[in-house]
C-alpha cells in the first residue's frame, strides 16, 4: 500500500515539520495518529511526517481560552480534567464517540479536523464552542475560525500548512447555559449518520438568550444551523418552538444518500437530534418542556 514511501520523519518541532512538508513537494503526508492516513492508503505518498514528537500534545489555558494541541488524542480528551470541566464536558463526551477505544488511543483532534470528513465527530461540538484553529506554514502563523477551516480542510490552500492547535474561547458561562452532543449511528461504534451539538442559555423567564446548533454528516462540511439559531433568540422554549426549529434545521441541511442512510432519513434525523439536543440542554436547567 505504502510501498512508494521513501522516508519516515519524526520532526522534533513544528519548524522542522514545516520544512519537511515544504521539501516534500506535495508528496509528503503529515501523520498524527495515522488512523485516517493508513485507511485512505494513498499510493502516491513518498514521505511521511510523524508530528507527534513536535510538541503538539497539550491541553492548556491561555488567558480565558482553552488551547488543545493538534496531536492530543481522543483518549486524552476523554480523560482530561480540564476537558471534563469545559462546557459541561462537551468535548470529552464527544471524544468518547470517536471510534473504538483502540482507535481513540491513536486518533488525534488535529487529524479529526484536518481529515476534513463531514462526519468528524469533534467538529460539531467545537463549532458550537466557536473554536478557531491555528495554522502555520513556512511564512505565517494565523488563526482561522474553525468553520472556515473545515470548508476547505483538504484543499490546496492548507496543503503545506500544519494545524498546530485548536483554540476554544471561554464559553458563555453563567446560569442556564448548557451543552449537548447527540450522535446517531447504526451500531455503537460507527461513523455518524448525523451528529448534532447544541448549546443554549435561557434567561430567568425561560426565554432563549442565545442558542447554537451544529450538525455533522448532513452537508459537505460540518455546519452551524444559523437560521435556526436566529429564530430561537428571545423566544420561550416550548414544544412548538422545538418543532419549528426542527423543521428549520431540516431545511438548512443538504444531506446525501449513501450506503449508510438516505438523504431523507438524514434530514428527518437532523430535526430529531436537534430537538433532543435542545431538550437535553434545557432539561439540565430544570426547564420542564
Amino acid at each position: 500500500m505504502f510501498d512508494k514511501v521513501e522516508a519516515f520523519y519524526r520532526p522534533a518541532n513544528v519548524r522542522e515539520a514545516l520544512r519537511l512538508l515544504q521539501s516534500g513537494k506535495g508528496q509528503a503526508r503529515v501523520v498524527a495518529g495515522g488512523t485516517d492516513v493508513v485507511v485512505e492508503g494513498d499510493d502516491s505518498v513518498r514521505y511521511l511526517i510523524d508530528i507527534t514528537h513536535a510538541g503538539l500534545s497539550y491541553i492548556r489555558r491561555r488567558g480565558t481560552a482553552s488551547v488543545i494541541g493538534a496531536t492530543t488524542t481522543m483518549a486524552e480528551l476523554e480523560a482530561s480534567d480540564a476537558m471534563q470541566a469545559l462546557a459541561g464536558g462537551l468535548l470529552s463526551r464527544a471524544a468518547r464517540w470517536c471510534g473504538s477505544a483502540l482507535v481513540r488511543n491513536l486518533a488525534t483532534l488535529g487529524g479529526n479536523m484536518a481529515n476534513g470528513s463531514p462526519a468528524a465527530d469533534m467538529a460539531t461540538p467545537l463549532l458550537v464552542l466557536d473554536a478557531s484553529v491555528v495554522m502555520v506554514n513556512a511564512r505565517s502563523r494565523h488563526k482561522l475560525p474553525l468553520a472556515e477551516y473545515l470548508a476547505g480542510a483538504r484543499t490546496k490552500r492548507h496543503a503545506r500548512s500544519l494545524l498546530v492547535e485548536v483554540v476554544v474561547p471561554e464559553p458563555p458561562n453563567g446560569k442556564g447555559c448548557r451543552w449537548s452532543f447527540q450522535k446517531l449511528g447504526r451500531t455503537a461504534v460507527d461513523i455518524s449518520l448525523v451528529n448534532v451539538a447544541a448549546g443554549l442559555q435561557l434567561d430567568s423567564r425561560g426565554r432563549v438568550k442565545w442558542a447554537r446548533i451544529a450538525l455533522g454528516a448532513v452537508a459537505p462540511a460540518p455546519m452551524r444551523a444559523s437560521g435556526a439559531e436566529q429564530r430561537m433568540k428571545g423566544r420561550i422554549l416550548d414544544q412548538a418552538l422545538l418543532a419549528e426549529i426542527g423543521a428549520e434545521v431540516a431545511r438548512e441541511v443538504s444531506p446525501i444518500s449513501d450506503a449508510r442512510a438516505s438523504a431523507e432519513y438524514r434530514r428527518e434525523i437532523s430535526s430529531v437530534l436537534t430537538r433532543r439536543a435542545l431538550e437535553e440542554c434545557s432539561a439540565h436547567v430544570g426547564c420542564s418542556l
Binding site: 414544544q239 418543532a243 426542527g246 430537538r275
Partner: peptide
C-alpha cells in the same frame, strides 16, 4: 406529519 405530531404531544 411530523410537526403536527410534535405539537400534540
Amino acid at each position: 406529519n411530523l410537526e403536527e405530531e410534535l405539537l400534540t404531544q
